[in-house]
């Protein structure tokens, strides 16, 4: 952001209580990550800039800082990025170097075959994708199993390209390398970490 004093557009506030708000949101992300497939509602949240869902903005405020690299798709490299840059100080990088990637629209995904998956020595360097979707009340459920899920969980995402599910399926063949994903709609988030196995039929899951 380059603000030259007078006449600047009005900026949005970040967290009103940065320390405790960050901790609260972090705790909720942890809850989502440890219960893959379950919808977690974040509350209460600051208003988000255009292009970002409120939960996406809160996630970024809680997770990003000066030391965490982030990739944004072209749709977000405007007002949204100005706000994120101002509030988090996170450096914008190419996908290959990103710790986090923020995707404005689940219909329009980057090439998920080329995202950072970490290395055998540093599996934690796999990217965390934050993908905005249209809702969690879609017509076609997926069935999830794995750590944190008692039996099978179902998840019906609206507005997410099938390429996501293909890429997630590839994750299980290279564990512990892989990417983690947080799907976002409005104030809700659903985590699909790399340890989760997804299928289209409950029996397979």
């Amino acid at each position: 952001m380059r603000v030259h004093g007078q006449g600047s557009p009005l900026m949005l506030e970040g967290f009103t209580d940065p320390v405790h708000d960050s901790q609260r949101i972090f705790r909720q992300i942890l809850e989502a990550m440890s219960r893959p497939g379950s919808v977690v509602t974040l509350d209460p949240l600051p208003a988000a800039p255009a292009g970002l869902h409120r939960a996406s903005f809160a996630l970024c405020l809680a997770l990003l800082d000066h030391d965490s690299t982030v990739w944004l798709d072209a749709a977000l490299q405007n007002d949204a990025w100005q706000h994120l840059s101002f509030h988090t100080g996170a450096p914008l990088v190419a996908m290959a170097e990103a710790a986090f990637a923020l995707i404005a629209d689940g219909h329009d995904l980057p090439d998920l075959a080329r995202v950072p998956l970490g290395q055998a020595e540093y599996p934690e360097r796999g990217v965390t994708l934050i993908i905005q979707v249209d809702g969690f009340d879609g017509p076609q459920p997926r069935f999830l199993k794995g750590p944190g899920i008692d039996g099978t969980a179902s998840l019906a995402v609206r507005g997410l390209d099938d390429a996501f599910w293909t890429a997630i399926a590839a994750n299980q063949h290279r564990f512990q390398l892989g990417f983690d994903a947080v799907l976002v709609h409005d104030t809700n988030i659903v985590a699909v970490p790399r340890s989760t196995i997804v299928s289209t039929h409950p029996a397979e899951a």
Binding site: E13, G14, F15, P18, F86, H87
Partner: peptide, 8 residues
């Protein structure tokens, strides 16, 4: 004033 970034 509208505090965008609380004293940090």
């Amino acid at each position: 004033p509208h505090v965008l970034r609380q004293p940090e």
